[in-house]
Amino acid sequence: MALMTRAGLLLLLLITSVPVLADSAIEVRDFERPVMAERYRDLTASLRCPKCDAQAIDSSDSPVAADMRERVADLLREGRSDKEILDYMVARFGEFVLYNPRLDERTWLLWGLPFVLVMIGGFIVAVFVRKRKHAQVRALSAEEREYLNALFNREGSE
């Protein structure tokens, strides 16, 4: 019996957990200045909804996302800076809500590695080309030539 209930619960979970992509919330919000509307759009696009799977608060219709949008708008009208608003959200919901992770000791690798790799890449190209610049073209060995011939002949005759 317990097994049956558990199976039933599991089935329910499976059924109910599929439609995560709820349709977007459309709210009419007026700001005095267009700059503010722009900032509102950027902020709500870079804050992650804590309840949802992987959505910014601007596109989620979960209640907490709606509350957060409302709060962002209020704080903007109060004249807070973007950083203050982000700090405000982090203080309540944690670093998790920042889609744009801050540079700190945990994330230096995340932000730094691509730049380091570009530099290493540049170095590799430099070394490679220097080494190869005067390299002589080596003709294929007799064995290689024969193998190639055999391959192409077989392919051609098919």
Partner: peptide, 18 residues
């Protein structure tokens, strides 16, 4: 080390110069 999110702003910032 805690939970963070990496989202569109990160990728856009890096992909434009690349």
């Amino acid at each position: 080390l805690g939970k963070i999110s990496v989202g569109p702003p990160y990728f856009n910032t890096l992909f434009v110069p690349l």
